[in-house]
Design a protein around this nucleic acid. Sequence first.
DNA 1: GCGAACCGATCGATCGATCGGTAGCCTCTT
DNA 2: AAGAGGCTACCGATCGATCGATCGGTTCGC
Lengths: 218, 218
Amino acid sequence: MAVATGERVRRAAVKLFATKGFHGTGIRDLAQAAKLSSASLYHYMGTKEELLAGIMRDCLRNLLDEATTALEGVSDPVERVRRLVTVHVTAHARQPNETRVADDNIEVLSPRLRRDVVRLRDDYEALWSDTIEEGLREGVFDTAQPTVTRIAVLDMCTGVARWYSSRGPLSLRLLAEHHVELTLRALGVRVSAGCGLANSRDPQACPGAAAEGRSWGE
Amino acid sequence: MAVATGERVRRAAVKLFATKGFHGTGIRDLAQAAKLSSASLYHYMGTKEELLAGIMRDCLRNLLDEATTALEGVSDPVERVRRLVTVHVTAHARQPNETRVADDNIEVLSPRLRRDVVRLRDDYEALWSDTIEEGLREGVFDTAQPTVTRIAVLDMCTGVARWYSSRGPLSLRLLAEHHVELTLRALGVRVSAGCGLANSRDPQACPGAAAEGRSWGE
DNA sequence: GCGAACCGATCGATCGATCGGTAGCCTCTT
DNA sequence: AAGAGGCTACCGATCGATCGATCGGTTCGC
């Protein structure tokens, strides 16, 4: 067999939860998309909610692992931010469905299933908080409201999952680099002109991502 | 009577749709929250979906009107951005439920109801696009990917609805000013130090919004 | 006596979940 | 070699609950 059945179920759930929402997806939709009877579904998932929680957990664990690895041995706050943003943006651009499911459904989970997910999210965000605090301590960052700035930057990088299309004119690399630049600017880092990720005015006509119309709502 | 029944229905819907989602909210939940029988509900709303569309339409119309008014007679791109951000952030902080419903449910609407809402959203975003383009033309903005920057800034300002609490230590005024600063930085505006919204390093311990734990997911 | 405001009862459809089953394969026993 | 038993993989049928929506009413101010 090409793809294991359990994996088919997981993938169908990711796609449907991302596009129609958890409550908007029935188990019969799920069964049809996974080419299975709704009864057989229960051989692979626990409840529908446990399936959701599993997807969210795996997605966040991946993100946390990737970020942790990317930060290993790196102490310069600017370089740490570069890597955090790159990992975050890349993950959200490459797996928009997984990340959207993980980002948008915390409130759906019952307390029992929510706990693990929230802990993973908090651990992940702690990487950002710690890095920003260290940058402030060293005097390389300059922002009056570090917490607000952190949330704002995370929101902006997370949003990528909602509009980026790899079929658009913007490469994944450029996308990540641009978000690194936006983030460093938000953090008040003075980017020395012409060096590193310097931002030359590029007059080419608006190479926005998936055409002007954003992907959501036609 | 204190509040008209129709208004009670509307408010209940806003709160429930924002917290539990459209598909997560049943008409019986709605009826209970509005202190009405589920049958009487239909005397005030059309279908549940039309109720949603009405909320979204009104919210976006409000935002568009406020922004248009705020921009009247203002041609300086920097000042226009200041006002756009202030209107956007203030609306999202003051009416987080309305704006979340308007922002998160476009894909839920059937094409017929979606059209008007999408047009309003596009008209609103055009204010941002035009302003940013003008700023680039005048040379006061500096960003290599204007479209990406616009989307990123909008996402970051929209996110306010998901975490800001007026009961937190951060005033609405400071919140808006900080987002103006973040946005101008993202757009590559050089803020002359010590003037206007200058950003002095403020060492007070992280006056983040609704306590550290963000509002979503405990 | 008419319309606005409201509701109990109930519609058919769909919800998430479970039931008792069957088919095929692997292992162990004799 | 033959069979017994058990396990994974799957499904048709159906459970009770709930879904969004509609019906035929009643009450009440104008």
